[in-house]
């Protein structure tokens, strides 16, 4: 039971507690670019999840074989391979979504969620755990994209997944479908996430591991919890 719970926790961690978009603020470029419509957000989310799970599994399986000095080029080759596979499959079987995603499908290769999880998690954990981490992070990414795309499409374009919503037609805010609207919704969603998590006890920097941090590899001096404790201490000092 405990084992099952720990596996479930790995998935749930990516979904909410360490959501890659709203908490770790990774993968911002596709988030802003692909949330103009629900369909393209869905396509991007599914494609990124597939690549994330497969690349995490492959990298975890190869973790003892890949020398440290060439690990990043190896990860890039593996990730690029899976992205190309997904691209070809989408071109063949989902041509409309393939066209809609355009250049952003190929850009999954440089999505920092994928490279970040490979570097921070998959290279240190088992294949199963890495697959679950990839699934959780992918679903978290998909969830954030879908919520953001729904807000932008419904209120910005008075439609949902291409279906016109006549009730919203007179009230639509066109800027939401443009780039500034994307930034606005993104910021509000992060604020809302922080507020919700605050009520639940809060997500402080020390409450999630260094594995989620994109700069953890270069941050050799102290880990996040030490830094957070130092920040808390200095705040207390100032207050005193």
């Amino acid at each position: 039971m405990k084992l099952k719970n720990s596996k479930l926790l790995i998935v749930l961690k990516g979904l909410i507690l360490e959501n890659p978009v709203l908490v770790l603020v990774l993968g911002t470029c596709p988030t802003l670019a692909q949330t103009g419509s629900v369909i393209s957000a869905l396509g991007m989310g599914i494609a990124a999840t597939l690549v994330l799970v497969c690349s995490n599994m492959a990298i975890s399986a190869l973790r003892k074989v890949i020398p440290d000095t060439v690990r990043i080029p190896c990860y890039i080759v593996v990730i690029a391979g899976f992205v190309s596979v997904v691209q070809m499959l989408m071109h063949a079987y989902l041509p409309d979504i393939y066209d809609m995603m355009g250049v952003y499908l190929a850009l999954i290769v440089v999505n920092c969620i994928i490279l970040g999880r490979a570097e921070m998690y998959a290279r240190k954990n088992t294949v199963l755990d890495s697959a679950l981490d990839g699934l959780g992070m992918g679903l978290g990414f998909l969830l954030a994209l879908l919520i953001m795309a729904t807000i932008r499409e419904v209120f910005g374009n008075a439609s949902f997944a291409g279906i016109s919503l006549k009730f919203f037609e007179p009230y639509k805010i066109a800027i939401l479908t443009q780039a500034p609207g994307g930034f606005l919704v993104f910021g509000l969603m992060i604020a809302a996430m922080n507020k919700i998590m605050e009520k639940q006890g809060g997500v402080k920097r020390k409450s999630f591991s260094c594995e989620g941090c994109p700069t953890a590899a270069t941050c050799n001096k102290r880990n996040c919890s030490e830094m957070s404790e130092i920040a808390d201490l200095s705040q207390e000092k100032e207050e005193a």
Partner: peptide, 18 residues
Amino acid sequence: VKPALVLGIICLVVAALL
């Protein structure tokens, strides 16, 4: 030689998959 060899093999496997 190992790093170059491993990277080369990974490239070949990925190319074959593609």
